Computed example of a mutant assay.
Amino acid sequence: MKRFEGKVALVTGGRSGIGLATARRLTAEGARVFTAQRGDDREFEAIAVDFTVPAGAAHAIDTVVARAKRLDVLVNNAGMMQEALVEDMSLADWERTIAVNLTTPFVLIKAAMPHLRSAGGTIVNVGSIEGLGSNPKHAAYCASKAGLHGLTRAVAIDHSAEGVRCNAVAPGWIDTDLNVEFIESMSDPKSFRQQIGKIHPVGRTGKPEEVASLIAWLASPESSFVTGQVWTIDGGRMAKLSLPP
């Protein structure tokens, strides 16, 4: 099935994890895919960008349109996380997290909107279940993802009548390289993975390809009546009530 034949997509943070799986999925379905992140990307047409600087986001959109003459799909996936209590986090660290996780998607959407409007395009923002709840010491990350969910709804309200849909996914624990490395750093990785699996009703953590599948559906014509929604993809974790240990 080639749902994106003749379409052009930009995936930020497309060199690893959910971004990489999404870029591969869109490519497999016919899209011409650009990725934007720090450094090079040998698998896709890459745009080197520093997303801590707002001008970098606008540059990414301009580069895609200059090369491909159109833009049909924008996937805002690039993000970062810093752990600290509110009283211990510097203002600079707070602003950096907000810049990458929330301001960058805003600037990308702003720059992309004329092209997406012309193409009848779609936007998919990669939020998090931490936009719905929070883990310890994740104040900046949690706030930025909650903000991204709100931005998703606002953009949908303002632009869906113009033919531009905007949705978000809220992944839970996904086996990205970073999370796998974290598990492997434990004294007993096998036991830790089992414990992590138990907090999910499906009995395991998620795969980047599973999130990419949802993103591709939201970006495709098959979801043409879906906009302004945040789709939780977490193996049922947020639906499960906790029990005493």
Results as ranks from 00 to 15, higher is better:
218 L>C: 04
142 C>F: 00
189 P>R: 10
219 A>W: 09
178 L>G: 02
237 R>D: 09
3 R>A: 15
141 Y>P: 01
20 L>A: 03
185 S>Q: 11
10 L>G: 10
26 L>Y: 10
101 N>W: 01
66 A>R: 14
213 S>A: 11
27 T>L: 15
81 M>T: 03
142 C>D: 01
77 N>Y: 09
180 V>D: 07
11 V>E: 08
7 K>I: 06
173 W>E: 04
230 V>Q: 04
171 P>A: 04
151 L>A: 08
39 G>Q: 12
114 P>S: 06
151 L>H: 07
169 V>R: 02
115 H>E: 12
71 L>V: 07
130 E>D: 12
172 G>A: 10
84 A>G: 12
244 P>M: 08
14 G>E: 14
59 H>L: 11
90 S>Y: 07
66 A>I: 10
192 F>A: 15
74 L>N: 02
87 E>C: 10
110 K>V: 05
183 I>P: 01
61 I>V: 12
232 T>M: 08
83 E>C: 05
229 Q>S: 15
126 V>C: 10
221 P>W: 04
90 S>Q: 13
231 W>N: 03
112 A>M: 08
210 E>N: 08
241 L>K: 08
186 M>R: 11
51 F>G: 05
242 S>Y: 06
143 A>S: 14
94 W>T: 05
206 G>P: 01
240 K>M: 14
99 A>S: 15
86 V>N: 03
170 A>V: 09
9 A>G: 06
3 R>S: 15
197 G>Y: 01
224 S>R: 12
222 E>R: 04
